[in-house]
Design a protein around this nucleic acid. Structure first.
Lengths: 114, 114
DNA sequence: TTGGTTTGTAACTGAATGGTTATATAGTGG
DNA sequence: CCACTATATAACCATTCAGTTACAAACCAA
């Protein structure tokens, strides 16, 4: 498999694609859904109940993640089980979380220093 | 330094913080600005010219990135030089770009298989 | 069939936001 | 002083989008 690298400077088209992915992960509800799916597949209703979201909204956000290829869908009778399809999301989230935590800690340190 | 880990399940507050960071990176213009700054600090006008953006918009987007701690500002007379302040953004972007490229390649393969 | 359950979807609303225009601020040179 | 340059910012507009409501579709049980 040929290794394809993004151009530098980044073209508007590629920037758009990457930005789309970032924006997809840039919502608290979707992040919490992904986090809940760390433990394995779950049904829409179960996820909705745990998040305190409506079923409609949960279904919509799950569909967005699945359409992007991050989640997989599996029907079983009435229930629909969603699961992580691309484990890369964990790596991505971990890296971003670490950066955010570092900033939060730094801010906290600033506060304590006053 | 104590290692602080995000709670699981992710609380709404932490999810919000992480989502904010993702959303900040979820814009093509800001991603291209970050990409241009890989080569070192640049002035607002220089960046605006290369992106084909207005000076006002470029300044606004740079300010957003700087306020979040991702960029640093350095004034020198009339000019204002921006630079990467948190190298973690490169790691973050690289991870996401790799994932996006993989999906793009997979889509391309699907097309060729038809 | 009838009723109940789970999920998907269309239409709508309010809020957030990227980009533009115009203006303010501040530094430089004559 | 004045003009010019580089940057920041305020006001505004158009678009995007998360969430809600209502409803449709699909499946199961009795």
């Amino acid at each position: 498999m040929a290794q394809i690298v993004l151009p530098h400077p980044l073209t508007p088209e590629y920037a758009r694609s990457v930005a789309d992915r970032f924006r997809l992960l840039g919502d608290p509800t979707r992040l919490r859904l992904i986090d809940l799916l760390r433990d394995g597949e779950r049904t829409v209703g179960s996820l909705a109940q745990e998040l305190g979201c409506t079923q409609a909204n949960t279904s919509k956000q799950l569909a967005l993640l699945a359409d992007a290829g991050l989640l997989s869908r599996r029907r079983e009778g009435l229930r629909c089980y969603y699961a992580i399809a691309d484990p890369a999301v964990f790596e991505i989230c971990d890296v971003v979380c670490a950066s955010v935590l570092q900033h939060l800690n730094a801010s906290l340190f600033q506060l304590k220093a006053i």
